[in-house]
Design a protein around this nucleic acid. Structure first.
Lengths: 222, 222
DNA sequence: TCCAATATTTTTGTATACAAGGGGTTTGAC
DNA sequence: GTCAAACCCCTTGTATACAAAAATATTGGA
């Protein structure tokens, strides 16, 4: 009801970051952004703090706020952790998921496939995100769900790199269906495994990603 | 070199929180703390932001900063996640740990046992913490190590509850040795399992903790 | 011309002043 | 006596002013 300026500013900057509007190493100018948003530096600095805490940017003492994209090794490390967290969610969800949740999950898969067919990538991203969030909630562990969502958001700028590689989207959809089937069977191990494979960067996708990464290394992460 | 006021304030408040200086639901008064530390509200609010981001306190819009201790269910959930994260660290560490790291880990176990013998609980906590941090680093995944450390810190106020229950400390030490042995053998699964059992709240410890929790529910978490 | 030392400027960090929302209290009506 | 509404005060949120540190430009010397 009472939207603090700092919060809306945070969201706007966050949006700019996750859509890759800033280049690696770029410094976010306090005064420039402040006048761009028509606010004072105070709420802006608050937003910086918050964003730094979620890892979306880095604060260097008396130097400012910087976008520091992870190097390739760290990116792989992050996805490795994400894979394990998702596997953990899936493992628990397989035992606890309700039929309503299964329906909701199934709908996101259908919507994803429809989006691919329509070539509507934004819609695809939205539904894909919904799929994963439903899964986090289905784990039945609210703390785990929050942590998973946090990490998921943090990886958002880099997830697009993966999906852009040729043929990744249909493959990704097949994996969603595998997860769904394992959930339906109530098989924790199979669900966990399917999710681990779905998220982790390994095998041929390792090379695919490395190429994408190099391509946009010096460019903006558009 | 240049200690920002906000950072030192953050550390001081963090210390107060993790040592359980605040009761559940307590509101942290900006002006009171500011004058107590002899600083203005600005760095103090910055510290609040940072602490809220790590989950040590909760910011409610236009209401203030509150200490919100997790309820019992959430506490178990948090330790469940911590157990899995530590298991993940251990799994990787079993393959990657160096001999130097093994020596360092071994030393913390010895120091822990010595501390128990001396009845020096603070020393025990310090060395116990060192043990776990060495393990996080040994995982070889820097991102994972940071996340593990973050969660570890967040759980600090509640870990003491576990250790206080009768006979927990010697048992905890036996578990450290089990982890150490599994690491030495280079056995990922055994290391992971040992850590999961070491951290998770299950079996009889579930009841032990529930009693401790109830005892301090209305009191301060000293 | 290049380097170093210093001056200047820019930018962050902190304090303070001001605005505005929420909670509590008081007062009034039923 | 209890409930509700209006008012006041206290607290948070935002803007701005000021201080201090870092980055940059400038000037002097070799």
């Amino acid at each position: 009801m009472s939207p603090r300026i700092a919060d809306s500013v945070r969201e706007r900057i966050e949006q700019m970051i996750v859509t890759g509007e800033f280049a690696d190493g770029e410094r976010l100018d306090e005064v420039k952004l402040a006048e761009q948003f028509g606010v004072s530096r105070t709420p802006l600095r608050e937003a910086f703090q918050s964003l730094a805490a979620s890892g979306l940017l880095t604060l260097e003492a008396r130097r400012g706020a910087f976008i520091r994209h992870p190097d390739f090794v760290e990116l792989v490390e992050m996805f490795e952790v994400m894979a394990e967290i998702e596997a953990m969610c899936g493992f628990r969800a397989a035992r606890r998921v309700t039929q309503d949740q299964m329906v909701a999950i199934g709908l996101t898969i259908d919507a994803c496939e429809a989006a691919i067919a329509m070539g509507d990538f934004d819609e695809y991203y939205r539904e894909n995100e919904k799929f994963h969030h439903l899964l986090y909630d289905a784990s039945g562990n609210r703390f785990l769900a929050r942590e998973a969502a946090r990490l998921h958001k943090r990886l958002k700028p880099y997830r697009r790199m993966q999906l852009r590689t040729s043929g990744r989207m249909p493959q990704s959809m097949r994996e969603h269906r595998t997860v769904y089937a394992a959930l339906q069977r109530g098989d924790p191990k199979a669900t966990a495994l399917a999710l681990r494979l779905h998220v982790a960067i390994q095998g041929e996708r390792f090379n695919d990603l490395m190429v994408s990464y190099r391509q946009m290394a010096s460019l903006k992460t558009g």
